[in-house]
Design a protein around this nucleic acid. Structure first.
Lengths: 335, 335
DNA sequence: CTTGGCACTCGGGAACACCGAGTGCCAGGC
DNA sequence: GCCTGGCACTCGGTGTTCCCGAGTGCCAAG
């Protein structure tokens, strides 16, 4: 399978099928693309391509449709990511620049991506594991209840209400807070446990029970919140008639954070764009996922991407995902 | 229209149609319900009911289907809210009791409601307008950037990054924070503007520009966040074949916070359960909404509810919404 | 006011034929 | 050896027709 023309045929089939949505036949191919040969020749090529598993025909007397393997070859060898136009890039930039906080960045990103690609966008919250502690706040709520607020350098805020074992006055709370901040300021989240290990011993006897409770909740927060939040938008785009796969399954997957995490895949190389096509997905065959990492530094903090029908315009979608990932990274780096 | 039997017929039609999903005819009615009369009599009654606009027939030779007006009468006069079983109530209680913070309460509530009703659940975040300030935190992020964190008694936390007009050292920030907290502690959110009006004047000259910037952002936060957050879950239930209305429209509405707000309606009487049927809805005819207020005190802080096809089991749905609203209120009151 | 009888309507499904796009194959030509 | 035109074949989709049966409205009798 080193034949240039066969590759051209495959490319043409993918392009036509993606744009029209109908199986494409030999005659239509030679009409729309000027391959300098006759339909019969194309038919021979198609027979070979089918035998090799790149295309298939839904019914005996119908045109050909790319298989997952065909899309894969197309994405890997036969296409280039299509960059966004200047106008689109500026629109992305200004839209994202208006965000007021991390929540807002994520929210805007997911909506933007859904709108750009006309598909379902998925954005993972920046992970904490590589973040550092900016500030720990302990706010008294009542005599034996405080709220723990953890603020990280990524701008993420987590809070927990804590029941204390006994009444603690404000001065003690303030003291614990001061000690905690002194110990943790700038500390990487992954190093928090070791930093606080001996902390109770540095406090006066009477503060220790309260401090121990607070610390255990703090550690719990770190663990709990490690299972990341994920948001999605653009579910309305699922109503497009493309979706042969059960709409219900997709919607269910979207609401299952864990499944969504798996679909987005592991954070890997920052610049790389991951494409998972149809049956390559752990769940949800029939859909494809285009994802990329983003973050404020060189290493990706989290991932974002879109989920759509296998029959999607990969070059354009990849261009949109890449552009959005870049601009989000830029925004995050600036804050 | 004071005829008892006609009301019974309407009730029977609604019940049968809701459970079976097919237009119900006179013969089926007398078979399934023991009204002691013949099909012909029922037909006469149905003719009257149709003339009065309570039922309609999709095609000339088909059974009858309730109209929006018919459902309305059914909900108002012909049915009672069906209470949840003890087991269900216990399940709700324990599921909600596991929540760690407000976010979690809301998240759990919306999922629970979606699961209980097998429809799309919508939960509004507790509104701030009747909350009070628990604490204001100002965290230096860099030399000329701080983060403002506003914590209210409902446990809600809002944060904003603020660019300061010039470099401000930590001591000054601490001072501004102290003054701010002294002025606002326990203050109702609606009274914040008046409380901070003369605040810059009570600060030393050099602090005023920074304080003014921070205050303006604080006020902006109050206003911005007044357009409440809303979350939904259970979109997968839309895939049920009932939905004659455009699935796409519903999904779009769900992602438009503003539309969703309107649909949920105004917070009104705490105990009341609002039902909006089909065309009674501002947007999205063809769907019905069952909603209730919830909150920690007597007055509702926010609303929650479900959205489903007009053809829904109103008594059961209303029971579920009422039960969830009660238990959430209970949880909120306890924290 | 209720009831049985009866003619009428009409949506939906089954059976059927037709069309046309598309294919595979083959023999001839460059 | 590869390309090409020709040709017979397949089969999904569409349009047509027909039929059935559920359901209705109306009427006259109880």
């Amino acid at each position: 399978m080193v034949d240039d023309r066969k590759l051209a045929v495959l490319r043409a089939i993918v392009e036509d099928y993606v744009s029209a949505g109908e199986p494409v036949g030999s005659k239509a191919l030679v009409d729309r693309h000027n391959l300098g040969v006759s339909p019969a020749t194309i038919r021979n090529d198609m027979a070979v391509l089918e035998e090799q598993g790149y295309i298939t025909q839904p019914h005996t007397s119908a045109g050909r449709v790319p298989t997952d393997k065909g899309y894969r070859l197309f994405v890997d060898k036969l296409s280039q990511i299509k960059p966004m136009s200047g106008a689109e890039r500026r629109a992305i930039e200004t839209f994202l620049a208006g965000a007021v906080d991390l929540d807002d960045v994520v929210m805007r990103t997911v909506r933007l991506l859904a709108q750009l690609t006309r598909q379902v966008a998925v954005v993972q919250y920046p992970t904490m594991s590589s973040s550092t502690v900016r500030h720990v706040e302990i706010v008294p709520l009542s005599e034996h209840r405080v709220m723990l607020v953890l603020i990280t350098n990524t701008g993420r805020v987590d809070q927990r209400v804590i029941e204390l074992p006994h009444v603690v006055d404000e001065a003690r709370v303030a003291h614990i807070r001061a000690v905690l901040n002194a110990a943790l300021d700038g500390c990487g989240l992954n190093r928090v446990p070791e930093m606080v290990a001996d902390l109770p011993e540095r406090l006066p006897e009477e503060d220790r029970p309260a401090a121990a409770t607070i610390l255990s909740v703090l550690l719990e927060t770190l663990v709990d919140r490690h299972d990341e939040k994920i948001v999605f938008a653009g579910a309305a785009n699922l109503a497009a008639p493309d979706f042969t796969v059960g709409l219900r399954d997709v919607l269910e997957a979207l609401e299952e954070q864990v499944v969504l995490m798996r679909l987005l895949g592991d954070a890997s190389d920052m610049a790389a764009i991951t494409v998972r096509i149809g049956s390559e997905n752990p769940y949800l065959q029939g859909t494809s996922i285009v994802a990329a990492g983003y973050g404020s530094g060189d290493k990706p903090l989290a991932r974002l991407g879109v989920l759509g029908p296998t029959r999607m315009d990969y070059p354009v979608t990849m261009g949109a995902v890449r552009a959005v990932a870049r601009y989000v990274s830029q925004i995050l780096a600036a804050s």
